[in-house]
């Protein structure tokens, strides 16, 4: 007699989760991930603005350009 395989095919397609599946702790993980990514991006953006501005200003000073002639 042929033995039946223990292997079962996985259910394909989108798995819709119930709210109970992500429970009380993991909702916080998702929320913090969303808010954290936005906060981090905003801070990085502000720092990049500052760096771009300071680098340009320093280069202008170092290369001895007059403030009137540079614009």
């Amino acid at each position: 007699m042929r033995r039946r395989s223990r292997w079962k095919p996985q259910e394909k397609g989108v798995k819709v989760m119930n709210t109970s599946e992500y429970g009380n702790i993991s909702w916080f993980f998702y929320v913090i991930a969303a808010y954290g990514s936005v906060a981090a991006s905003i801070i990085v953006f502000a720092i990049s603005c500052r760096r771009q501005y300071c680098k340009a200003q320093e280069a202008l000073k170092e290369e001895g350009f007059s403030a009137d002639k540079t614009w």
Binding site: C49, R50, Q52, Y53, A56, L60, T70
Partner: peptide, 12 residues
């Protein structure tokens, strides 16, 4: 902030 930084860069 970004606009001023771009202006400084273009000025250079």
């Amino acid at each position: 902030m970004r606009r001023t930084a771009i202006a400084a860069q273009e000025s250079l």
